[in-house]
Design a protein around this nucleic acid. Sequence first.
DNA 1: GGACCTTATGCAAACGATTGTAGTGCGCTA
DNA 2: TAGCGCACTACAATCGTTTGCATAAGGTCC
Lengths: 330, 330
Amino acid sequence: MERITLSDVAEAADVHVSTASRALNEASRSVVKPATVERVLAAAERLGYRPHPLARGLRTSRSLSVGVVIPDLQNPLFGPIIAGIEQSLAPEGYSVLITSARPGEKEAVENLVDRRVDGLILATAQRSDQVIERLAEQKTPTVLVNRHVESVDVPSVVGDDHLGTRLAVDHLVEMGHTTIGHIAGPAHLSTGLARRQAFEQTMHDYGYRVLIEDADGFQVAPGEQATGRLLEREPGITAIVAANDLIGLGAYRTVRSLGRTVGTDVAITGYNDVAMLDLMEPPMTAVRVNFRRMGQMAADTLLARLDGRSVDPIILLEPTLSIRASTKGG
Amino acid sequence: MERITLSDVAEAADVHVSTASRALNEASRSVVKPATVERVLAAAERLGYRPHPLARGLRTSRSLSVGVVIPDLQNPLFGPIIAGIEQSLAPEGYSVLITSARPGEKEAVENLVDRRVDGLILATAQRSDQVIERLAEQKTPTVLVNRHVESVDVPSVVGDDHLGTRLAVDHLVEMGHTTIGHIAGPAHLSTGLARRQAFEQTMHDYGYRVLIEDADGFQVAPGEQATGRLLEREPGITAIVAANDLIGLGAYRTVRSLGRTVGTDVAITGYNDVAMLDLMEPPMTAVRVNFRRMGQMAADTLLARLDGRSVDPIILLEPTLSIRASTKGG
DNA sequence: GGACCTTATGCAAACGATTGTAGTGCGCTA
DNA sequence: TAGCGCACTACAATCGTTTGCATAAGGTCC
């Protein structure tokens, strides 16, 4: 099955290839006689013509594709983000090139830039990041998602960590808790830091003591260990705000191993609300971040930048709170 | 920052662009004088030349990219699959175009074919599928992952459902169970059917009764309902083999709501072993499918096809069994 | 020392589109 | 009827590569 090219269409419509091109392109269509447009369109339709994106891209130096760099594709967070990105981009004719940052973020980005993507969406930024600075210098349209970089003005789409943390604390306070601890995530990641600061501030506003212990990572085991340290130091704690869900599940384990019950003895909140949290025992209350929506907004922001429209440097996504048994005292 | 093109390199090395091209391409390098190769390579290095994939693709009609179609990016299964695909393809210089089958599988595939991907990996196949048949006719290199289509000979990489199901049943029998039920997945998906048949066969081999109830989908709620029907019909059941993890978790719910205990009263096994199953209460025994590896194998198979090498029509991935408390009787 | 092969390079045509510019034919005006 | 503008379309260059073919220089053979 041979591919139909523009000149096939032109020949069939008995016009020059350039005329065919103009007839097919919305923008330039106005300069060609309506009757001719009709003929070209009919021929294209009849032959089943599909434009060749590579050839077009070569000429127009636009590939109609965007690159997405993900630190760890295994992380269930990124599925929804990618889904959201895809959903926003596909209708505009853009394709999505996915790359893992595995060998290295720099290599991943270089590879995508080599491929002449029109823009980039990065989910990998550390709080400061040379790769992103370079990208900003070269004026490569870039949007960050779920991370914020302070040093350069690349727009980022992030959850409102301050609001989210406050939702969790407010809820716990409402349930009668006053001695509330926080298991913080790594401070070199923007979400780790932001949630920690938000916790400090909120507790300060309430006039309660600020009790924090750092987990070495956003994983179950570090959460388990950090919770152990915190409860040993401050046995009076009745509620724990975890910096993410996995840390929260680690806290579950520690609380249990101390012979206490999650929900009644110690309330625990997670953050992100990944799938299956409602299936835990007890189901875990968590700040819910709509990652699909986050992906959509990142894609929309990138589209705006590609259009030359100016965009807010930081787009906040409002989280909600999914209240479940882990904070309801059985 | 202007892009460096091949003719820049050629000029710098004081050779014709065609010579530069030959010097840079492994395959044709042998025809150009070693000293010249040296000069060209040096110039390319010095200028930081990066070839333009679109231009190359236009000429060679290879895009060095493959398309991946995923039915539902939200499903945590696909993260690891994509990770595996990416891991195998990236070192070979291929990029991965991800598309959701959301608007429609046909549209997704057409879009990718328009973009001139060199090959396709589909995770979306129903048991019979016209889109795939068309692809096979057009000889577009295609590999299926986690699904098998009977009607055409497109290679598929799938978990060995027969083995996996047998692992689960064997384990349950070993634990002393004889009255074992199966909650089957939808029969129009190959995994649903295969696991059901494997269960029938295995139970038949053991000489036990075959007790099966169909769930309307691979989700928690259908699993919960189907388990309810099964236990009502056959109250003597002491163990349940679920067609996937979520169905298994649905079974958890039903068992609990009947006032019985998972693990001691009724053993339950899941299938796939998605993340966080070990964090359930009780942790769930499940047949573990290595989806990352599955993605890798799909990518490797596609690479083989692209190389013109012939490949097995069906590649089986051996599952293992992750034994946890849900089958250990507390 | 001319025919001939080998080796290394240059030339130019592709690949399939887009787009600035030139040209054609027509009707209109003076 | 010559001149002009207008509407339309054709020509050709271009994007950055790859690649068949021509060409040039140098070496070998008889």
